[in-house]
Amino acid sequence: MYVPPGWPAEVRPPGDPDWESSAVAWLLDAVPPDYRAYGVLRRHPLALARMAGYHVRSAIEAARAGYRGAAVDLKDHLPPHAIEAVLEAYRQEGPRLVRLAASIDLVERALRGEPFVPRM
């Protein structure tokens, strides 16, 4: 089964045995641990994917806001090298979150039954 670029390595391709179980395990790792307490999210992977997508997209917005304000908010409390290290952490975390959101979107599309076809 073809999976598009950005498909998470931890998730089996759609149609493989237990692919949805691997998707649930991976999605639960993408959200706060408290989400594991809700059985409905294990029973309905599409609901979990949807919630994970919202959670990660919110984290992206929070990281962008944090990056924009870090230098001003921290200038009276941290030395310049520490502020630069904080900004570098944001510069690394932002793209990671964007990739994660894209992967979650792919898994959600597969859970909805959308087939993936290689593009030429």
Rank of each mutant, 00 (worst) to 15 (best):
R91Y: 09
A71F: 09
R99W: 08
L28V: 03
P95C: 02
L46Y: 08
A89T: 03
V86G: 02
A85S: 15
L97A: 09
H77D: 04
H44A: 06
P32N: 06
E114Q: 13
R50H: 13
H44Y: 14
A82T: 07
A49T: 00
A9V: 03
D76S: 09
G6W: 14
P80G: 04
A70E: 07
A85G: 09
A65G: 05
L106T: 00
I104P: 02
Y90V: 00
I83S: 08
A23H: 08
E93N: 12
D16H: 14
D73Y: 11
R42W: 13
G94Q: 12
G39C: 03
P14E: 06
L41F: 15
R99N: 04
M120V: 10
L41R: 10
Y38Q: 02
P4W: 14
F116S: 07
A9Y: 13
L27G: 05
E61I: 04
L46G: 05
L48A: 06
L111T: 00
P13F: 06
L97N: 08
Y35L: 04
P14I: 04
I60T: 02
P32V: 10
P115K: 11
P13A: 09
M51Q: 10
G6H: 10
R50G: 06
W19F: 08
R42C: 01
L28P: 01
V107S: 03
A52D: 01
R43Y: 13
V31I: 11
P45F: 14
G69F: 14
P17R: 15
L97V: 01
G53W: 14
G69Q: 08
P115Q: 06
D18H: 15
G15N: 11
L87W: 11
L28F: 15
V86A: 11
D34P: 01
L100C: 05
P45Y: 14
G69N: 09
P45K: 13
G53S: 08
L78N: 05
Y2P: 00
I83E: 08
H55C: 02
G69M: 07
G53E: 10
M1H: 12
P79R: 15
L111H: 09
S22P: 04
D29R: 12
H44N: 12
W7N: 00
A110M: 11
D73N: 12
A70G: 05
Y38K: 02
V98H: 11
D16T: 04
